[in-house]
C-alpha cells in the first residue's frame, strides 16, 4: 500500500493541485491580511471568473491561458469596485457587517449565475487537456504543470509588487498600522479596494488555470473556498508564504487521503485537519498572531 510507485505520483499530483489551491488562498489571505475581514464571497467570485473564462473561450475562441491576460485586469477592476462601492459603504466598517455583506454578495453572485446559466455543468474541450508528460515513474498532466509554473510566477510578481513598489509599501503600511498610514497621507479606502482587487485578480488567474481540466457550474467555486480557508488558517491569516506552502501541503493531504480513504472521503481529511488547526493552533503553522 505504501509502494512508492503509487505514493510518488500521488504526492506529485497533490503538489500540482495544491499550487492552484494556493493561488485561490493567496487572494483570500491578502484580503484578510490587509482588511482583516473574511471574504465569504471568494468562492462565488471564483465561480464567476470560471464562467467568464468559459464564455471568453466559447464566444471569442480565446485560449483560457490567453483569456487570463484579458480577465485579470477586468477582475481587478471588478474587485476594486466591489470593495469601494458596495462592501465598504454597506458595512460601516464593522467586522460582523462585512461578514454579512460578503455572504450576501456570495448569495447574489452564485444565484445570479444559476439564474443566467442554469445548473448545467459545462466543460471546455481542448486538445492539450489530456496530454501528459512522461517522467518515467509518473505521468503529469500538462495543464497542471502549466498551472504550477504560472502560480510560481504570479507569487513572484506579487512578492515584487508588495516589497518593491509604492503601492505595495502602502498596502503593508495599512495592514500594519491603519491610523498611522492614514496620518501619513495614504488613502486607506483606496488601498483597501486595491487589495481586494488584487485578491480578485488572483481568482481570475486561478479560474483560467482550472478551466482546461475542471468543469464549471454555479457552485463550482465552492469546492475550493473551504479548502482555501483551510490553507489560509494553516499558513497563518495574512501570510503570503504561508498560503503558498499551505496550499502545496493541503494538495498533498487531499491526494493522499483520497488514495487511502477513497474519492468521496478525500475532502473529509481536509476539513478534519482544518478543525484541528483551528482548535489547537488558530494562528497557523507559520502565522505570528491571530
Amino acid at each position: 500500500m505504501l509502494s512508492p510507485v503509487i505514493l510518488i505520483p500521488a504526492v506529485l499530483n497533490g503538489l500540482l493541485i495544491g499550487a492552484v489551491y494556493a493561488l485561490v488562498a493567496l487572494g483570500l489571505t491578502l484580503i484578510y491580511g490587509v482588511l482583516h475581514i473574511i471574504n465569504f464571497a471568494h468562492g462565488a467570485l471564483l465561480t464567476a471568473a470560471m464562467f467568464a473564462a468559459f464564455f471568453v473561450h466559447r464566444l471569442l475562441g480565446l485560449d483560457p491561458y490567453l483569456a487570463a491576460v484579458l480577465l485579470t485586469p477586468l477582475f481587478f477592476v471588478f474587485g476594486y469596485g466591489l470593495q469601494r462601492f458596495i462592501i465598504a459603504p454597506a458595512a460601516h466598517g464593522e467586522d460582523r457587517n462585512i461578514l454579512l455583506v460578503t455572504l450576501g454578495l456570495a448569495v447574489i453572485i452564485e444565484n445570479g449565475l444559476l439564474y443566467a446559466f442554469r445548473a448545467d455543468t459545462r466543460t471546455i474541450n481542448l486538445d492539450y487537456a489530456f496530454r501528459v508528460i512522461d517522467l518515467g515513474i509518473v505521468f503529469l498532466a500538462v495543464p497542471r504543470v502549466v498551472a504550477f509554473g504560472v502560480v510560481i510566477v504570479v507569487a513572484l510578481i506579487l512578492w515584487f509588487v508588495m516589497s518593491r513598489t509604492d503601492t505595495g509599501r502602502a498596502i503593508r503600511a495599512v495592514a500594519k498600522e491603519k491610523l498611522g498610514a492614514e496620518l501619513s497621507g495614504i488613502d486607506v479606502a483606496h488601498i483597501y479596494a486595491v487589495t481586494f482587487g488584487l485578491g480578485t485578480a488572483c481568482l481570475a488567474i486561478a479560474a483560467c488555470l482550472l478551466i482546461p481540466t475542471y468543469y464549471v457550474n454555479p457552485q463550482a467555486g465552492n469546492a475550493f473556498v473551504l479548502i482555501a480557508f483551510t490553507i489560509v488558517v494553516l499558513g497563518g491569516m495574512g501570510s503570503v508564504a504561508g498560503a503558498l506552502l499551505g496550499g502545496l501541503f493541503v494538495g498533498v493531504v487531499e491526494s493522499l487521503s483520497g488514495l487511502y480513504l477513497g474519492e468521496s472521503l478525500g475532502q473529509l481529511g481536509i476539513f478534519v485537519m482544518f478543525i484541528l488547526v483551528l482548535l489547537f493552533r488558530p494562528n497557523g503553522l507559520f502565522g505570528e498572531r491571530i
Binding site: G104, V107, Y115
Partner: peptide, 19 residues
C-alpha cells in the same frame, strides 16, 4: 419558476438591511 432569482433578491435585501 426561474431558479436562483429569489435568492438573488435575498442577497440584495441582506446587504440593504445591513447598509
Amino acid at each position: 419558476d426561474a431558479p436562483g432569482l429569489d435568492l438573488v433578491i435575498y442577497g440584495c435585501v441582506l446587504i440593504l438591511v445591513v447598509a
